[in-house]
Design a protein around this nucleic acid. Sequence first.
DNA 1: TATATTAATGCAACTTAGTTGCATTAGTCA
DNA 2: TGACTAATGCAACTAAGTTGCATTAATATA
Lengths: 141, 141
Amino acid sequence: MKALGEILAELSKGGFRITRARRSMIEVLLDSRLPLSAEGLIDALLGKKVPANKTTVYRELTFLKEMGIVQEIQFLHERVKRYEVVFGGHHHHLICMGCKRVEDVELEGELEKYEREIMNSRGFKVLNHTLEFMGLCEDCR
Amino acid sequence: MKALGEILAELSKGGFRITRARRSMIEVLLDSRLPLSAEGLIDALLGKKVPANKTTVYRELTFLKEMGIVQEIQFLHERVKRYEVVFGGHHHHLICMGCKRVEDVELEGELEKYEREIMNSRGFKVLNHTLEFMGLCEDCR
DNA sequence: TATATTAATGCAACTTAGTTGCATTAGTCA
DNA sequence: TGACTAATGCAACTAAGTTGCATTAATATA
């Protein structure tokens, strides 16, 4: 997980402008410990008195995705997409069906075994995967 | 994977009516070797000269989900939801980024190891999970 | 087989999430 | 400080799915 300054420097070096909306969006996403929807992001911005236009927010999210700064997540139990700042390591989510909170998990060893298996038995080359666990968190059990 | 007759008998026993739309939708879903979107389902029905109203199709999909006959799948690379008849065993998908085809995979041993790990380290009780692999199929590599 | 009951249907109008075109604004560099 | 153009914001649009309500038809019963 990078710091705000690092991200901004990287963008600046790439010839992109550091606007109020851009900076604030990255700040909000960095501060949120769970992935935000576009709507949630707009609310957070308005809460910080940062003008947040829907079009701008969606366009900026597309941009930040292309830059590899944020990633988009689609949870099965929701219609909307969520966004989070890309983490150092690839990780997954624990989604509590009680309180709807989302936590991150990193898994040891990952799914390489399965990916090899799939390659061998099907000739299918896995390039990426998504994995989400649904259940009940400690508080909701 | 159940046969059409079985499914219809089960519904009938439950006091639900066997209508043309209901029978045809289950038929189409059983025949499709990949999960269908609502739109794809409507097209398939029209192709069979079965009148297919959007509202009816969505309502029937909701019903079939509630009955545990079909399951809804959300792929990360798509906006729409897809539906498939529930299989005997829990399974996952291989999504080809080239030709967009979807194949099923069943994994040995599954993710129990991770689910135990998550329970032990976080106190989070996993009840369900989703796992999709994105990559290139044999033909597209 | 006819009839009553109500599950299922279908239209139209709506909602939600996200997108597009285009004129305007504001970062950045010289 | 000004020129350049990336980024913005409005309004209008699209796609996917939903809702209310009057109508139709599957089934049980007489």
